[in-house]
Structure formats: C-alpha cells, structure tokens
Amino acid sequence: MDWQHLATQLFGAEHGIRRDGDFLHGEVSFDGEMLTVLGTTDHAPIGVQLALAQARVVLDTVARHPGRALLLLIDTQGQQLRRRDELLGINRAMAHLGMCLDLARRRGHRVLGLVYDQALSGGFITSGLIADACDAVPEAEIRVMRLPAMARVTKLPESMLAELSKDNPVFAPGVDNYVAMGGVRRLWEGDFQAALRDALAQAPTVDRRAEDGAARGGRRHAADVIQRVLQAV
C-alpha cells in the first residue's frame, strides 16, 4: 500500500512525515501523544546509509524524547546487494540499527513495526523483527525468497514445495504464514487508527514469538526446544 495513503489514514492529510529518497521520517501526533515515525518506501534496499539514517532518528528520539513510542513503517526488498556495502560493513550497520531499537525498548520506548508493503530477509531482521511487536496490513508480502528461487537453491521441485506449503507455513512466502509462526503479531484490518491504538496499548517487552508460533500452530517446535534447553541436565 502507498505510504502516503497509509500516513493520511493514520494521522490525517497534515501528517508531517517526510520522504527523503527512500527514507521516511517524521514526528506525528496521535491521540494527543507524539510518536516518532521512521521507515522506508519504494521497496528500498537497506544499505549502510539507509540503516544509519534510521538509527539516527532512533538515537535522537531516545536522547530528546524519553519514552516516546517509535513506529517503524516497513517496505524493503532486503539488504543492499553491493560490494561497497559489504566492504563498509553492512552487517555492522544493521546490527547498530537493531541495537539502537533494542536500547530504546530497554529505556521504556515502545517500538512497533508495521509491514505496510513488503518485507524481506536482511531488511526485516533489524526493523520489524527487533520491535516489541510487528504488525502488518493484509496485502503485505513477507518472505525470504519466492518458491521458484527456493526450488533452485534447494534443488527440489517447485511443485513439491508448493504442495508442502499448503500445510506448513515454514516454506512459502505470505503474511498469513508469518502470523501463524508468531513473527507477525496481527493484521490490521478495517479501522487503522483503532489498530494503531491497540498496538500502542499492547507492546510486549518480552519476546513471545516462539510461544505465539506454537499456540497458532505455525511454528510447533521452537518454544518446546527452548524449554527443553532450559530444563536439560
């Protein structure tokens, strides 16, 4: 979905969110409370620069506005696939962004992710997946790779992967699969303002995704394995 359309639905036509290249940022008022909004658009590849631009906004919010909630608007094709970014340490820049968001959480900021368009692998790990909770719009696309690419990498027939995907959310792309596995908490349907209100009111500070995945039947082993490690003699 278009970011302007989303921003207008949530915060009105005068929302105050700016776009600089693929980078979105702004301070918005919602229910009389200020929020910091940051994210990307146009399926942005996340390279060193874009990771740092987002980290800057997080650090400024922590320094200047203690406790203010952060809303991450996610639309990315994944990490920037360039030699320059690897040379400059893209993994370190991504870790930095994730650690900035983690620090914000530890200092009492709510950190909410919203996949409003597309979320892929490396671009998602240090945004929505490091948030307190990540929600999505129903038409969002979340994946590591599509089935044809997965068939090539795994050297398994695509038809077999497609068949297995019907019952096992681990294999196939799709926002519903991420909900079933606990990676996405819930989908925003209908009234987006009400959905954001709920999200701000319910920002868990502990990681419950493995339990959610088990309860929803999409990730049946992770929570059990974690418990077995804790109980092992």
Partner: peptide, 22 residues
C-alpha cells in the same frame, strides 16, 4: 545465515537469537 529450506522460521529465529543475545 537463514537456512533457506525453512526460510521463514529461520528468519524469525535469527531475530530471536539477536534479542536473546542482547
């Protein structure tokens, strides 16, 4: 990184490892 044969679960798992490490 993520094991592509079970990509969706692996992606979420890596982020869980990151949070647990921090």
């Amino acid at each position: 990184g993520v094991r592509l044969h079970e990509a969706n679960a692996g992606l979420i798992a890596v982020s869980e490892v990151m949070r647990a490490l921090l």
